[in-house]
Simulated scan of single mutants.
Amino acid sequence: MSQKWIPLDLDERVFLEGQARLDDHIWNRNGFDLNVIRIPCTNDNIDNLLKGRFVLQRTAPLFRLPPELLHQILQLLNPTRAYAPVTFFFAMTCKVALLVARSEIVRIQRRHFGCFAGHRLICIGDAARTLADYPRGLLTDKERREWFGISDADDERDNVDASLFTLAASSWRRVGEPPSLIRISDLIWRRSPISCLSTSDFLFFRTLSTPHYPTNAQWVVCNLSKREFVRYDAIPPARNKLDSVDVQPRRANLCRLILACICWSPEQDTGVRGSAGGEADAVNTQLVRGRWAGDRLEMTTFEQMAPCEEGLRWKDVTEDLLRLLRGLWVSKMEDPMRCLTLEMAYRETYRVNEVQQKGQVTG
């Protein structure tokens, strides 16, 4: 019987999907929702809204106050800094208010929508039952003590029972896609403050509160621990019988690929296999030792990638990961001739000089 798997955020102590066979996670659940690690471009959105002339709004008594006091008023309106409408209502007052609220909106939107960006992610199999079964350095001393009662002085502590799978499934909570501030129920069945807005104000509120993910930006999934990245646009949006119900096949493929990169188990049997022979075996070998298991991941634009420390460079590993994605499809479809050669598609789309757009990036 194949082992069960569960995707975890170790920093937040939550699981991103329920326990299931890995084959089910990858093909039937689309991995996990990428938006939990995708950082919205809120700065760009607000900057566009601030374009144009400012009316003389400082004649209003409120906006005669210094910016420092306006910031304090904004914090008093939303002391918990929750993702609440009141912050956006304040920002909608005028451009001066929007300018004052800009940094706060950026902060709460990133915390709400990119809530797991930069966190340690791993999809662990239930066969991992001791510390020796996990990637080296995955857990801190504090986590080993609090989660499993293992002290640094324990002899042979690597062999002590320590099942992350059991711990998460029994006591951690599940999280899904971050909810929007605009709900149909609020607009139809009860008169919330949002439902009382005029049409023009509602459209402005929706523009301001909806996370901004520009389609013309070059999105990348970054491994902050290893300084590696994969390019979103390089994932082919090819459809076939398995993707017939996918609205965004490119995104679905990236979800599957990222999940495949964070899997970890001491056992070779993943349950993801077909009759493709050696290629399916190679895929299983990579899955049980995911190259990004337990690393800190985030999805951002190429321009907003975190700078490297001096002497270090980002490395584009898109081509390597596309081979894994192709292997997944071949093992599932059981017919290599029906699968797109993803590496060739990548080479045709991106040239080496485009990959090295930054001085800190290497191919």
Rank of each mutant, 00 (worst) to 15 (best):
E279N: 04
Y134M: 12
R323E: 04
R145W: 02
F204K: 14
P179E: 01
N48E: 12
K315N: 05
L287K: 01
V317N: 03
N284Y: 06
G327I: 10
L8C: 11
L325T: 14
G31I: 03
L8G: 10
G277T: 07
L340H: 00
Q248M: 15
E267N: 11
R21I: 01
P266Q: 07
R183I: 07
R129Q: 00
L77H: 09
T59R: 02
T300E: 02
G277W: 00
N159Y: 05
R58Q: 14
D295C: 15
I124L: 03
C123D: 07
T285Y: 07
Q286H: 14
I188L: 12
P66L: 02
A276W: 04
D295K: 03
G271I: 01
R136T: 05
T318Q: 06
A293M: 03
R183F: 01
T207R: 04
E279P: 01
S171M: 12
R351V: 06
A132G: 12
D141W: 05
Y134K: 08
A282H: 15
I194V: 09
G327T: 01
P67S: 07
Y134G: 04
R250F: 15
R190K: 06
V100C: 15
F88I: 00
C308F: 05
V288K: 13
S195A: 14
A20H: 11
W5M: 12
D335P: 02
N35T: 02
V175T: 13
S170A: 08
D281I: 05
G359K: 03
F148L: 06
D24K: 14
K51F: 03
T318I: 08
A97W: 04
R296V: 02
N48H: 09
D44L: 11
I262F: 08
N253K: 09
A127E: 14
L321M: 15
C115Q: 12
L49D: 08
P236H: 04
L321T: 11
P178F: 03
N43R: 15
A169W: 07
D186Y: 05
V106A: 14
A169H: 04
R251G: 01
E343F: 09
T59P: 02
S180V: 00
S2T: 12
V245S: 11
R289D: 05
R145N: 01
E309V: 07
R256N: 12
Q218P: 14
L62N: 06
Y350H: 05
R110E: 13
E348G: 13
D320V: 08
M299H: 04
S170W: 00
F204E: 09
D33Q: 01
D246M: 08
K241Y: 03
P7T: 00
V283I: 05
E17N: 03
L322Y: 08
W264Y: 11
L287S: 08
N78C: 09
L208P: 09
S180W: 03
L98G: 10
S2G: 11
R206W: 05
T140G: 02
F63S: 15
F15L: 06
L257Q: 02
V288L: 13
M305C: 14
E309R: 13
R38H: 09
R190H: 13
L325M: 14
V230T: 13
Q268L: 11
I73R: 15
R157L: 10
M305E: 13
W5H: 09
G359M: 06
Y83Q: 11
Q360F: 00
V14Q: 04
V160W: 01
